[in-house]
Design a protein around this nucleic acid. Structure first.
Length: 700
DNA sequence: GAGCACTGC
């Protein structure tokens, strides 16, 4: 700790913070900013009038940094130094320095918008630009105006982003603190390779043959490529002449790897052995592998992005930003001087790479964030005027408002409703919050809680697929409930109910090939949601996992209806002649049910006429993931509401007609929906559906 | 009949 670079800047930092409400700190890796900034300000008396809060984008970081600071100060974790993450608050009245995830700080600001308990707020790793960090940046800008006399805000960022953040905060000062990285030599390719997989392979072998010992970290885009490269590397390394170079261990590293496989990268290699770690961007920030001296950077990353005009997510391979490229290179210089092989030319890096990664706020659906901001009730709150460091597009805000209106969170004038206020309390996406509220009305809350919790953890439930476990998976899946044909939500419900009946037996999870960690997470989320719902209802609700059934409910009717109301913006109608679907959103899309779905066709091979879906994502083609059958007479009232939507009113009406107002929603070009081969007039489709509905009614 | 990067309340 004694020789951390940041400590030489203590005087300068304190002086600048004393004189300015906001300071940007450029702290390179190894500068000690995360552990030292809070201690410096603590020493200088900033904890006399309140606590110092330090946000981290990740839970593990909040915990581990808090632990280290407590150790350095010689106090017990949870006393003077503590942390708060979801499900775990280790702070007390004595806490002066509090580390917390940015999501937790946002929740705190919901019940205390002035965040009055804090004298200092440090937004650490702000350059990662998580959705939560971006909202916090906007809130901080307001807060420093309101609390100019008694609040200090520090924002740590990357070199390339510092100016921009400073401009955002009225040109506040920027302090740079050097890091403790060893020099990393950057080597560029002459051109983009046709196959970055082959180029990575070749570069890795070159290093292995020519370079002295030291581990190699290779950045790939996804699991498939990682597995391919691992097996190719294994083949080629084995065919090298024995004794001609070091032994080699090749390790994959990605998020869907079970935790016990992930931690393999933390055990040191045997002597005379070089490790090749083939990783996704998980190794960029989340996990730090020691011993890396060489980095191979493909220059690509797989990124999830949201298209507000279609309501569709897609997972695309995109070029990384300069910040990301430098972060990757830095991974080679942690223990000694290293080398970074960039599989792209320097001119591409200089002229074509974005400085900073496109922030999440410009790549996500904003329904949750907009609802959150609306619920804050800030006096001058107008979502279109909220100051974002990088404002999302008007189209994206418009999409969020329409979604919120359809699920009754805001009224036709864009004002938050009483339903919306309750929804904002729940740590869920708005559609799931709405589902819980509806379920509570129709007596199936105990089921909806389970579905919401299972969907929140869905990606953690199944172990990563791989060729070797594939057959096993298929086999064990037969043992799991099948949703009784109604769909994936029902299957998720049944899985949890069955686990509940075993009294949460860990062995049961293992027998059914479900990740124990994921199922325990579901249990935690469910408990948290139950508590919040109890608090809101101010009474005792039936929240037992295997709650009481009413007569004649074996078709999960109430639950499916609650889902239909909650996901009013995520419904789809089957095509007449085949099992494709068309979404019933504002911009209809032709889509398929994902093949992994348990939704069952009827005797004629037809899938249900209407379904609710949890996610619309384009991978190889557009898919509905997690679908559930709903009934036409639940859908009709929703379609009528869609028809009546007036975006101008939703976005605040009169405000938009003011001349010179930026981001006028009314100025947006009205885009035509055009799906190849499908005549698509929304009006007439709604009319046609209504006609069919009436015809069927008449038949009865 | 396809397969999803990474976080978080």
């Amino acid at each position: 700790m004694a020789n951390l670079p940041i400590l030489q800047f203590e005087e300068q930092i304190v002086e600048t913070v004393d004189r300015n409400p906001v300071v940007v700190i450029i702290g390179e890796t190894g500068s000690g900013k995360s552990t030292q900034l809070s201690q410096i300000l603590h020493r200088r008396g900033y904890t006399k009038s309140g606590i110092i809060g330090v946000t981290q984008p990740r839970r593990v970081a909040a915990v581990s940094v808090a632990r280290r600071v407590a150790q350095e100060l010689g106090v017990h974790l949870g006393d003077e130094v503590g942390y708060a993450i979801r499900f775990e608050d280790r702070t007390s009245e004595r806490t002066h320095i509090k580390y917390l995830t940015d999501g937790v700080l946002l929740r705190e600001s919901l019940s205390n918008p002035e965040l009055s308990q804090y004298s200092v707020i440090i937004l650490d790793e702000a350059h990662e630009r998580s959705l939560n960090t971006d909202i916090l940046l906007g809130l901080m800008k307001r807060l420093v105006r309101m609390r100019a006399s008694n609040l200090k805000v520090l924002i740590t960022s990357a070199t390339l982003d510092g100016e921009k953040v400073s401009n955002f905060f009225s040109n506040c000062p920027i302090l740079s603190v050097p890091g403790k990285l060893y020099p990393v030599e950057i080597l560029y390719s002459n051109e983009r390779p046709t196959s970055y997989l082959e180029a990575s392979l070749k570069t890795a072998l070159d290093i292995h043959i020519r370079e002295p010992e030291g581990d190699v970290l290779i950045f790939m885009t996804g699991q498939d490529d990682i597995e391919k490269l691992v097996s190719k590397l294994e083949d080629r390394v084995q065919s090298l002449e024995e004794g001609s170079c070091l032994d080699a261990i090749i390790l994959p590293l990605h998020g869907s790897l079970p935790p016990e496989m992930q931690v393999r990268v933390f055990s040191p290699p045997p002597p005379n052995c070089r490790r090749f770690i083939v990783a996704t961007n998980i190794a960029e920030t989340s996990l730090t592998v020691d011993g890396v001296v060489y980095v191979i950077d493909s220059g690509y990353v797989k990124q999830r992005q949201y298209n507000p005009s279609t309501g569709m997510y897609s997972l695309d391979v995109v070029q990384i930003s300069k910040v990301q490229a430098n972060q990757r290179a830095g991974r080679a210089g942690r223990t000694r001087p290293g080398k970074c092989y960039r599989l792209y030319p320097s001119i591409l890096y200089n002229d074509d790479f974005l400085d900073v990664t496109v922030p999440e706020i410009q790549r996500s659906s904003l329904a949750g964030s907009v609802l959150y901001l609306k619920s804050l009730d800030l006096s001058d709150m107008d979502i279109l005027k909220f100051e974002f460091l990088d404002p999302p597009s008007s189209e994206s805000l418009e999409d969020a408002l329409k979604q919120l209106y359809l699920i009754d969170a805001i009224d036709e004038n864009g004002m938050i409703t009483s339903i919306g206020r309750v929804m904002a309390e729940l740590p869920l996406e708005p559609s799931l919050s709405r589902t819980l509220m509806e379920a509570n009305e129709c007596g199936c809350l105990f089921q909806a809680l389970t579905v919401a919790a299972m969907l929140s953890a869905e990606t953690m439930l199944l172990p990563g697929r791989s060729k070797s476990t594939e057959k096993k998976r298929k086999h064990t899946h037969l043992d799991l409930p099948d949703g009784s044909g109604w769909g994936d939500h029902i299957q998720l419900l049944q899985i949890f109910e069955e686990w509940d009946r075993t009294n949460y037996d860990i062995g049961w999870c293992k027998d059914h090939n479900l990740q124990v960690r994921g199922m325990l997470f579901v249990k935690d989320v469910r408990k948290q949601l139950s508590q919040i719902m109890q608090k809101i209802a101010k009474g005792s609700l039936d929240v037992r996992a295997n709650g009481r059934w009413k007569e004649g409910e074996q078709d999960y009717r109430n639950l499916r209806k609650a889902l239909c109301i909650g996901f009013a913006n995520q419904l789809a109608e089957r095509m007449v002649h085949h099992n494709g679907y068309r979404t019933l959103g504002f911009k209809p899309q032709v889509v398929q049910v994902h093949p992994s779905s348990v939704l069952k066709p009827d005797d004629e091979g037809k899938l249900p006429e209407y379904v609710v879906y949890h996610e619309l994502i384009a991978t190889s083609r557009p898919y509905l993931r997690n679908v559930c059958a709903v009934e036409i007479h639940w859908v009709m009232p929703i379609l009528n509401k869609v028809k009546k939507i007036n975006v101008n009113k939703l976005s605040g009406g009169t405000d938009l007609t003011v001349e010179g107002t930026e981001g006028k929603l009314s100025d947006l070009p009205k885009k035509e929906v055009n799906i190849a081969g499908v005549p698509d007039d929304h009006e007439s489709r709604i009319q046609a559906a209504r006609d069919r509905f009436l015809a069927r009614k008449a038949k009865k």
